[in-house]
Design a protein around this nucleic acid. Structure first.
Lengths: 206, 206
DNA sequence: ATACATTAGTGAAATCTTTCACCATTATAG
DNA sequence: CTATAATGGTGAAAGATTTCACTAATGTAT
Protein backbone atom coordinates (compact mmCIF):
# COMPACT_ATOMS: atom_id res chain seq x y z
CA UNK A 1 0.00 0.00 0.00
CA UNK A 2 1.40 3.35 -0.88
CA UNK A 3 0.19 6.41 0.96
CA UNK A 4 1.32 9.96 0.51
CA UNK A 5 3.07 11.70 3.37
CA UNK A 6 0.11 14.02 3.67
CA UNK A 7 -2.26 11.13 4.09
CA UNK A 8 0.03 9.44 6.56
CA UNK A 9 0.41 12.59 8.57
CA UNK A 10 -3.33 13.12 8.72
CA UNK A 11 -3.97 9.57 9.78
CA UNK A 12 -1.38 9.89 12.51
CA UNK A 13 -3.17 12.97 13.74
CA UNK A 14 -6.52 11.24 13.58
CA UNK A 15 -5.05 8.44 15.64
CA UNK A 16 -3.96 10.94 18.27
CA UNK A 17 -7.34 12.60 18.23
CA UNK A 18 -8.99 9.22 18.71
CA UNK A 19 -6.89 8.71 21.83
CA UNK A 20 -8.31 11.96 23.09
CA UNK A 21 -11.89 10.96 22.21
CA UNK A 22 -11.38 7.61 23.88
CA UNK A 23 -10.70 9.29 27.16
CA UNK A 24 -14.05 11.04 26.80
CA UNK A 25 -15.85 7.81 26.01
CA UNK A 26 -17.14 8.88 22.61
CA UNK A 27 -18.99 6.19 20.67
CA UNK A 28 -19.28 7.31 17.07
CA UNK A 29 -17.46 10.12 15.38
CA UNK A 30 -18.13 11.67 11.97
CA UNK A 31 -15.60 12.52 9.31
CA UNK A 32 -16.39 16.17 9.91
CA UNK A 33 -15.63 15.97 13.62
CA UNK A 34 -12.37 14.20 12.92
CA UNK A 35 -11.50 16.76 10.29
CA UNK A 36 -12.06 19.61 12.73
CA UNK A 37 -10.05 17.81 15.34
CA UNK A 38 -6.99 17.59 13.15
CA UNK A 39 -7.34 20.64 10.94
CA UNK A 40 -8.31 19.05 7.66
CA UNK A 41 -11.46 18.66 5.58
CA UNK A 42 -14.03 15.90 5.87
CA UNK A 43 -13.21 15.03 2.25
CA UNK A 44 -9.61 14.53 3.22
CA UNK A 45 -10.53 12.23 6.04
CA UNK A 46 -12.96 10.13 4.07
CA UNK A 47 -10.62 9.84 1.12
CA UNK A 48 -7.77 8.81 3.39
CA UNK A 49 -9.91 6.17 5.04
CA UNK A 50 -11.05 5.02 1.65
CA UNK A 51 -7.41 4.50 0.60
CA UNK A 52 -6.89 2.39 3.71
CA UNK A 53 -10.09 0.44 3.18
CA UNK A 54 -11.56 1.70 6.43
CA UNK A 55 -15.32 2.21 6.35
CA UNK A 56 -17.96 3.73 8.55
CA UNK A 57 -21.73 3.82 8.85
CA UNK A 58 -24.10 6.12 7.04
CA UNK A 59 -25.65 8.72 9.27
CA UNK A 60 -23.57 7.63 12.25
CA UNK A 61 -19.95 7.98 11.28
CA UNK A 62 -17.17 5.75 12.54
CA UNK A 63 -17.14 3.78 15.78
CA UNK A 64 -14.25 5.43 17.62
CA UNK A 65 -12.70 2.40 19.25
CA UNK A 66 -12.97 0.19 16.21
CA UNK A 67 -11.63 2.93 14.01
CA UNK A 68 -8.64 3.44 16.24
CA UNK A 69 -7.92 -0.23 16.16
CA UNK A 70 -8.27 -0.42 12.39
CA UNK A 71 -6.03 2.54 11.76
CA UNK A 72 -3.54 1.21 14.27
CA UNK A 73 -3.49 -2.11 12.52
CA UNK A 74 -3.10 -0.63 9.05
CA UNK A 75 -0.24 1.60 10.12
CA UNK A 76 1.35 -0.83 12.53
CA UNK A 77 0.76 1.45 15.45
CA UNK A 78 -0.59 -1.19 17.77
CA UNK A 79 2.63 -2.76 18.80
CA UNK A 80 4.73 -0.94 21.35
CA UNK A 81 7.89 0.56 19.98
CA UNK A 82 11.13 1.16 21.75
CA UNK A 83 12.86 4.47 21.34
CA UNK A 84 15.96 6.11 22.71
CA UNK A 85 17.03 9.68 23.14
CA UNK A 86 20.50 10.83 22.22
CA UNK A 87 21.62 14.08 23.80
CA UNK A 88 20.45 14.88 27.30
CA UNK A 89 20.69 18.64 27.36
CA UNK A 90 17.66 20.65 28.33
CA UNK A 91 15.55 19.51 25.42
CA UNK A 92 16.68 15.88 25.50
CA UNK A 93 16.12 15.52 29.20
CA UNK A 94 12.71 17.14 28.88
CA UNK A 95 11.84 14.53 26.26
CA UNK A 96 12.98 11.70 28.53
CA UNK A 97 9.96 12.22 30.68
CA UNK A 98 7.51 13.37 28.07
CA UNK A 99 4.57 11.26 29.22
CA UNK A 100 2.70 11.55 25.94
CA UNK A 101 5.13 9.21 24.23
CA UNK A 102 4.32 6.44 26.69
CA UNK A 103 0.58 7.02 26.43
CA UNK A 104 0.91 6.47 22.75
CA UNK A 105 2.77 3.20 22.80
CA UNK A 106 6.29 4.55 22.55
CA UNK A 107 8.60 3.42 25.25
CA UNK A 108 11.72 5.44 25.89
CA UNK A 109 14.08 2.74 27.04
CA UNK A 110 17.40 4.53 27.03
CA UNK A 111 19.08 7.91 27.04
CA UNK A 112 22.60 8.64 25.81
CA UNK A 113 24.97 11.51 26.31
CA UNK A 114 28.66 12.10 25.87
CA UNK A 115 28.94 13.71 29.28
CA UNK A 116 29.20 11.24 32.17
CA UNK A 117 28.50 14.14 34.43
CA UNK A 118 25.06 14.69 32.94
CA UNK A 119 24.25 11.02 33.08
CA UNK A 120 25.04 10.87 36.74
CA UNK A 121 23.23 14.04 37.63
CA UNK A 122 19.92 13.36 35.92
CA UNK A 123 17.19 11.78 38.00
CA UNK A 124 14.93 9.54 35.96
CA UNK A 125 13.73 5.98 35.82
CA UNK A 126 15.08 5.58 32.33
CA UNK A 127 18.45 3.95 31.95
CA UNK A 128 21.17 6.34 30.89
CA UNK A 129 24.37 5.46 29.13
CA UNK A 130 27.49 6.99 27.73
CA UNK A 131 27.24 7.52 24.02
CA UNK A 132 30.02 4.96 23.58
CA UNK A 133 27.53 2.29 24.48
CA UNK A 134 24.97 3.38 21.91
CA UNK A 135 25.63 0.70 19.33
CA UNK A 136 25.65 -2.06 21.90
CA UNK A 137 22.53 -0.96 23.75
CA UNK A 138 20.49 -0.23 20.62
CA UNK A 139 21.28 -3.65 19.24
CA UNK A 140 20.77 -5.57 22.47
CA UNK A 141 17.49 -3.94 23.28
CA UNK A 142 16.24 -3.89 19.67
CA UNK A 143 15.44 -0.22 19.73
CA UNK A 144 13.52 0.92 16.64
CA UNK A 145 13.50 4.66 16.96
CA UNK A 146 16.12 7.28 17.72
CA UNK A 147 15.41 10.79 18.90
CA UNK A 148 18.28 13.17 18.32
CA UNK A 149 18.72 16.19 20.56
CA UNK A 150 22.45 16.83 20.42
CA UNK A 151 24.26 20.01 19.40
CA UNK A 152 24.60 20.68 15.69
CA UNK A 153 28.18 19.58 15.32
CA UNK A 154 27.48 16.07 16.63
CA UNK A 155 24.26 15.42 14.75
CA UNK A 156 25.51 13.60 11.69
CA UNK A 157 27.84 11.42 13.69
CA UNK A 158 25.01 10.40 15.99
CA UNK A 159 22.74 9.71 13.05
CA UNK A 160 25.38 7.49 11.49
CA UNK A 161 25.83 5.57 14.74
CA UNK A 162 22.12 5.04 15.11
CA UNK A 163 21.80 3.77 11.57
CA UNK A 164 24.80 1.48 11.98
CA UNK A 165 23.22 0.08 15.12
CA UNK A 166 20.13 -0.86 13.15
CA UNK A 167 17.67 1.87 14.04
CA UNK A 168 14.71 2.16 11.64
CA UNK A 169 13.51 5.69 12.15
CA UNK A 170 14.86 8.97 13.43
CA UNK A 171 13.22 12.05 14.82
CA UNK A 172 15.75 14.84 14.63
CA UNK A 173 15.29 17.88 16.84
CA UNK A 174 18.46 19.61 15.81
CA UNK A 175 18.54 22.47 13.33
CA UNK A 176 20.87 20.49 11.07
CA UNK A 177 19.50 18.25 8.39
CA UNK A 178 20.77 14.70 8.59
CA UNK A 179 21.84 12.56 5.68
CA UNK A 180 20.87 8.92 5.94
CA UNK A 181 20.23 6.02 3.61
CA UNK A 182 16.93 6.27 1.77
CA UNK A 183 15.40 3.34 3.63
CA UNK A 184 15.82 5.03 6.99
CA UNK A 185 12.78 7.11 7.75
CA UNK A 186 13.56 10.40 9.35
CA UNK A 187 11.84 13.63 10.18
CA UNK A 188 13.56 16.89 10.98
CA UNK A 189 11.85 19.09 13.55
CA UNK A 190 13.67 22.35 13.50
CA UNK A 191 12.12 24.77 15.97
CA UNK A 192 13.86 27.81 14.59
CA UNK A 193 12.74 27.06 11.07
CA UNK A 194 9.23 26.54 12.35
CA UNK A 195 9.21 29.88 14.13
CA UNK A 196 10.65 31.51 11.05
CA UNK A 197 7.86 29.97 9.00
CA UNK A 198 5.21 31.40 11.30
CA UNK A 199 6.82 34.82 11.30
CA UNK A 200 7.28 34.85 7.53
CA UNK A 201 3.77 33.70 6.88
CA UNK A 202 2.09 36.38 8.86
CA UNK A 203 4.37 39.01 7.39
CA UNK A 204 3.33 37.97 3.92
CA UNK A 205 -0.36 37.61 4.39
CA UNK A 206 -1.12 41.24 5.05
CA UNK B 1 2.84 37.81 -3.42
CA UNK B 2 1.32 34.45 -2.77
CA UNK B 3 3.58 31.54 -1.95
CA UNK B 4 2.58 28.02 -1.11
CA UNK B 5 3.35 26.67 2.34
CA UNK B 6 5.78 24.26 0.76
CA UNK B 7 7.68 27.06 -0.88
CA UNK B 8 7.65 29.10 2.29
CA UNK B 9 8.89 26.18 4.32
CA UNK B 10 11.71 25.50 1.90
CA UNK B 11 12.79 29.09 1.85
CA UNK B 12 12.80 29.20 5.63
CA UNK B 13 15.05 26.17 5.61
CA UNK B 14 17.31 27.71 3.00
CA UNK B 15 17.56 30.77 5.19
CA UNK B 16 18.67 28.62 8.09
CA UNK B 17 21.15 26.81 5.91
CA UNK B 18 22.56 30.12 4.76
CA UNK B 19 23.16 31.06 8.38
CA UNK B 20 25.19 27.90 8.65
CA UNK B 21 27.13 28.61 5.44
CA UNK B 22 27.77 32.15 6.62
CA UNK B 23 29.63 30.84 9.62
CA UNK B 24 31.85 28.91 7.25
CA UNK B 25 32.48 31.94 5.08
CA UNK B 26 31.12 30.47 1.87
CA UNK B 27 31.02 32.84 -1.08
CA UNK B 28 28.79 31.35 -3.74
CA UNK B 29 26.39 28.47 -3.40
CA UNK B 30 24.58 26.56 -6.15
CA UNK B 31 20.94 25.56 -6.21
CA UNK B 32 22.07 21.96 -5.92
CA UNK B 33 24.07 22.57 -2.78
CA UNK B 34 21.18 24.42 -1.21
CA UNK B 35 18.83 21.64 -2.21
CA UNK B 36 21.02 19.04 -0.55
CA UNK B 37 21.32 21.20 2.52
CA UNK B 38 17.58 21.34 3.03
CA UNK B 39 16.42 18.06 1.54
CA UNK B 40 14.80 19.26 -1.65
CA UNK B 41 15.62 19.30 -5.35
CA UNK B 42 17.58 21.93 -7.22
CA UNK B 43 14.46 22.46 -9.34
CA UNK B 44 12.51 23.24 -6.22
CA UNK B 45 15.04 25.76 -5.08
CA UNK B 46 15.35 27.52 -8.40
CA UNK B 47 11.60 27.62 -8.91
CA UNK B 48 11.09 29.02 -5.43
CA UNK B 49 13.68 31.72 -6.01
CA UNK B 50 12.11 32.46 -9.35
CA UNK B 51 8.76 33.05 -7.64
CA UNK B 52 10.45 35.47 -5.28
CA UNK B 53 12.32 37.20 -8.07
CA UNK B 54 15.68 36.22 -6.62
CA UNK B 55 18.34 35.54 -9.22
CA UNK B 56 21.84 34.11 -9.32
CA UNK B 57 24.74 33.86 -11.74
CA UNK B 58 25.26 31.27 -14.41
CA UNK B 59 28.03 28.85 -13.61
CA UNK B 60 28.54 30.28 -10.15
CA UNK B 61 25.26 30.06 -8.29
CA UNK B 62 24.07 32.54 -5.72
CA UNK B 63 26.22 34.82 -3.56
CA UNK B 64 25.48 33.51 -0.09
CA UNK B 65 25.37 36.75 1.83
CA UNK B 66 23.38 38.64 -0.76
CA UNK B 67 20.99 35.75 -1.11
CA UNK B 68 20.39 35.63 2.61
CA UNK B 69 19.68 39.29 2.65
CA UNK B 70 17.34 39.08 -0.32
CA UNK B 71 15.38 36.19 1.09
CA UNK B 72 15.27 37.88 4.47
CA UNK B 73 13.90 41.00 2.91
CA UNK B 74 11.27 39.18 0.84
CA UNK B 75 10.02 37.22 3.83
CA UNK B 76 10.44 39.97 6.39
CA UNK B 77 12.96 37.97 8.34
CA UNK B 78 15.41 40.78 8.80
CA UNK B 79 13.70 42.60 11.59
CA UNK B 80 13.98 41.16 15.07
CA UNK B 81 10.81 39.65 16.41
CA UNK B 82 9.70 39.40 19.98
CA UNK B 83 8.30 36.13 21.21
CA UNK B 84 7.05 34.78 24.50
CA UNK B 85 6.71 31.31 25.92
CA UNK B 86 3.61 30.23 27.78
CA UNK B 87 4.00 27.22 30.03
CA UNK B 88 7.29 26.73 31.83
CA UNK B 89 7.31 23.01 32.42
CA UNK B 90 10.27 20.98 31.25
CA UNK B 91 9.76 21.74 27.59
CA UNK B 92 8.83 25.38 28.05
CA UNK B 93 11.78 26.10 30.29
CA UNK B 94 14.10 24.31 27.89
CA UNK B 95 12.82 26.60 25.13
CA UNK B 96 13.43 29.69 27.27
CA UNK B 97 17.14 29.27 26.80
CA UNK B 98 17.17 27.76 23.34
CA UNK B 99 20.00 29.84 21.92
CA UNK B 100 19.13 29.13 18.31
CA UNK B 101 16.10 31.39 18.51
CA UNK B 102 18.26 34.35 19.42
CA UNK B 103 20.82 33.60 16.74
CA UNK B 104 18.03 33.78 14.23
CA UNK B 105 16.59 37.10 15.23
CA UNK B 106 13.91 35.88 17.60
CA UNK B 107 14.04 37.39 21.01
CA UNK B 108 12.29 35.58 23.81
CA UNK B 109 11.26 38.49 25.98
CA UNK B 110 8.90 36.84 28.44
CA UNK B 111 7.83 33.57 29.95
CA UNK B 112 4.46 32.87 31.56
CA UNK B 113 3.19 30.18 33.85
CA UNK B 114 0.21 29.71 36.12
CA UNK B 115 2.41 28.49 38.94
CA UNK B 116 4.09 31.25 40.94
CA UNK B 117 6.27 28.57 42.39
CA UNK B 118 7.79 27.72 39.03
CA UNK B 119 8.33 31.34 38.19
CA UNK B 120 10.25 31.90 41.38
CA UNK B 121 12.29 28.78 41.10
CA UNK B 122 13.52 29.12 37.53
CA UNK B 123 16.85 30.77 37.01
CA UNK B 124 17.02 32.68 33.74
CA UNK B 125 17.65 36.16 32.43
CA UNK B 126 14.27 36.27 30.78
CA UNK B 127 11.49 37.99 32.65
CA UNK B 128 8.89 35.62 34.00
CA UNK B 129 5.31 36.46 34.84
CA UNK B 130 2.15 34.94 36.12
CA UNK B 131 -0.19 34.01 33.32
CA UNK B 132 -2.62 36.62 34.63
CA UNK B 133 -0.30 39.25 33.29
CA UNK B 134 -0.14 37.80 29.82
CA UNK B 135 -2.51 40.21 28.13
CA UNK B 136 -0.88 43.22 29.70
CA UNK B 137 2.71 42.19 29.02
CA UNK B 138 2.09 41.06 25.44
CA UNK B 139 0.42 44.35 24.62
CA UNK B 140 2.92 46.57 26.40
CA UNK B 141 5.92 44.89 24.91
CA UNK B 142 4.36 44.41 21.45
CA UNK B 143 5.13 40.73 21.34
CA UNK B 144 4.46 39.20 17.92
CA UNK B 145 4.84 35.51 18.53
CA UNK B 146 3.56 33.10 21.15
CA UNK B 147 5.03 29.71 21.88
CA UNK B 148 2.64 27.41 23.69
CA UNK B 149 3.98 24.65 25.92
CA UNK B 150 1.21 24.18 28.44
CA UNK B 151 -0.69 20.98 29.30
CA UNK B 152 -3.44 19.94 26.91
CA UNK B 153 -6.34 21.16 28.99
CA UNK B 154 -5.08 24.75 29.09
CA UNK B 155 -4.06 25.06 25.46
CA UNK B 156 -7.14 26.60 23.92
CA UNK B 157 -7.55 29.09 26.73
CA UNK B 158 -3.95 30.21 26.34
CA UNK B 159 -4.34 30.49 22.58
CA UNK B 160 -7.42 32.65 23.04
CA UNK B 161 -5.60 34.91 25.48
CA UNK B 162 -2.66 35.31 23.14
CA UNK B 163 -4.92 36.20 20.26
CA UNK B 164 -6.91 38.63 22.36
CA UNK B 165 -3.65 40.28 23.39
CA UNK B 166 -2.80 40.88 19.75
CA UNK B 167 -0.30 38.16 18.97
CA UNK B 168 0.23 37.51 15.25
CA UNK B 169 1.57 33.99 15.18
CA UNK B 170 1.60 30.93 17.39
CA UNK B 171 3.87 27.93 17.59
CA UNK B 172 2.01 25.25 19.47
CA UNK B 173 4.00 22.45 21.07
CA UNK B 174 1.06 20.75 22.69
CA UNK B 175 -0.59 17.65 21.26
CA UNK B 176 -3.91 19.48 21.04
CA UNK B 177 -4.86 21.38 17.93
CA UNK B 178 -5.78 24.98 18.56
CA UNK B 179 -8.63 26.85 16.99
CA UNK B 180 -7.90 30.45 16.13
CA UNK B 181 -9.15 33.09 13.71
CA UNK B 182 -8.02 32.52 10.15
CA UNK B 183 -5.74 35.54 10.11
CA UNK B 184 -3.67 34.22 12.99
CA UNK B 185 -0.85 32.09 11.66
CA UNK B 186 -0.20 29.02 13.71
CA UNK B 187 1.74 25.82 13.47
CA UNK B 188 1.19 22.73 15.57
CA UNK B 189 4.28 20.75 16.47
CA UNK B 190 3.08 17.58 18.05
CA UNK B 191 6.00 15.37 19.00
CA UNK B 192 3.93 12.28 19.52
CA UNK B 193 2.29 12.59 16.15
CA UNK B 194 5.70 13.11 14.60
CA UNK B 195 7.08 9.98 16.20
CA UNK B 196 4.00 8.08 15.15
CA UNK B 197 4.54 9.30 11.60
CA UNK B 198 8.10 8.02 11.58
CA UNK B 199 7.09 4.67 13.03
CA UNK B 200 4.17 4.27 10.64
CA UNK B 201 6.20 5.21 7.64
CA UNK B 202 8.91 2.69 8.18
CA UNK B 203 6.38 0.00 8.96
CA UNK B 204 4.70 0.64 5.65
CA UNK B 205 7.68 0.92 3.41
CA UNK B 206 8.85 -2.64 3.75
C1' DA C 1 39.88 31.55 -29.54
C1' DT C 2 37.07 27.69 -29.27
C1' DA C 3 34.79 24.01 -27.33
C1' DC C 4 32.89 22.16 -23.43
C1' DA C 5 30.74 21.75 -19.16
C1' DT C 6 28.13 23.73 -15.60
C1' DT C 7 24.64 26.30 -13.79
C1' DA C 8 20.56 29.47 -13.71
C1' DG C 9 15.78 30.63 -15.45
C1' DT C 10 11.38 29.23 -16.86
C1' DG C 11 7.20 27.69 -19.61
C1' DA C 12 5.13 23.36 -20.21
C1' DA C 13 4.20 18.65 -18.98
C1' DA C 14 3.56 15.38 -15.65
C1' DT C 15 2.28 14.09 -11.33
C1' DC C 16 0.09 14.42 -7.10
C1' DT C 17 -3.52 16.13 -3.96
C1' DT C 18 -7.66 18.10 -2.86
C1' DT C 19 -12.19 19.13 -3.73
C1' DC C 20 -16.41 18.27 -5.74
C1' DA C 21 -20.57 16.03 -7.44
C1' DC C 22 -23.38 12.62 -6.90
C1' DC C 23 -25.18 8.32 -5.21
C1' DA C 24 -26.34 5.17 -1.43
C1' DT C 25 -27.74 4.44 3.05
C1' DT C 26 -30.18 5.11 7.22
C1' DA C 27 -31.61 7.60 11.54
C1' DT C 28 -35.18 10.67 12.82
C1' DA C 29 -39.27 13.38 12.72
C1' DG C 30 -43.91 13.89 11.55
C1' DC D 1 -44.91 4.71 6.65
C1' DT D 2 -42.88 8.36 4.34
C1' DA D 3 -40.20 12.21 3.78
C1' DT D 4 -36.19 14.44 5.05
C1' DA D 5 -31.73 15.31 6.39
C1' DA D 6 -27.29 13.68 7.59
C1' DT D 7 -23.58 11.04 6.55
C1' DG D 8 -20.26 7.90 4.09
C1' DG D 9 -18.02 6.24 -0.42
C1' DT D 10 -15.84 7.28 -4.55
C1' DG D 11 -14.83 8.42 -9.54
C1' DA D 12 -13.93 12.56 -11.83
C1' DA D 13 -12.65 17.40 -12.13
C1' DA D 14 -10.02 20.95 -10.54
C1' DG D 15 -6.15 22.73 -8.60
C1' DA D 16 -1.45 22.74 -6.88
C1' DT D 17 3.21 21.26 -7.02
C1' DT D 18 7.03 19.15 -8.85
C1' DT D 19 9.72 17.76 -12.50
C1' DC D 20 11.32 18.24 -16.99
C1' DA D 21 13.09 20.09 -21.24
C1' DC D 22 15.14 23.48 -23.16
C1' DT D 23 17.60 27.97 -23.56
C1' DA D 24 21.03 31.13 -22.19
C1' DA D 25 25.03 32.51 -20.03
C1' DT D 26 29.75 32.05 -18.59
C1' DG D 27 33.78 29.86 -16.32
C1' DT D 28 37.54 26.67 -17.58
C1' DA D 29 40.42 23.85 -20.16
C1' DT D 30 42.94 23.15 -24.37
Amino acid sequence: MKLSDNTLERICKVFGYLNFLSSKGVGFVSSLELAKGIGATAYNVRKDFSLLGVTGYTRRGYPAEVLKQQLGQRLNLTKRRKACIVGLGRLGSALLDYEKFAEDGFEIVAGFDSSINKIERLRTNIELYSIDQLTKVVKERSIDLGIIAVPAKAVQEVADKLVAAGIKGILNFSPVKILVAKNIVHLDMDFTSALRFVAAKFSLQK
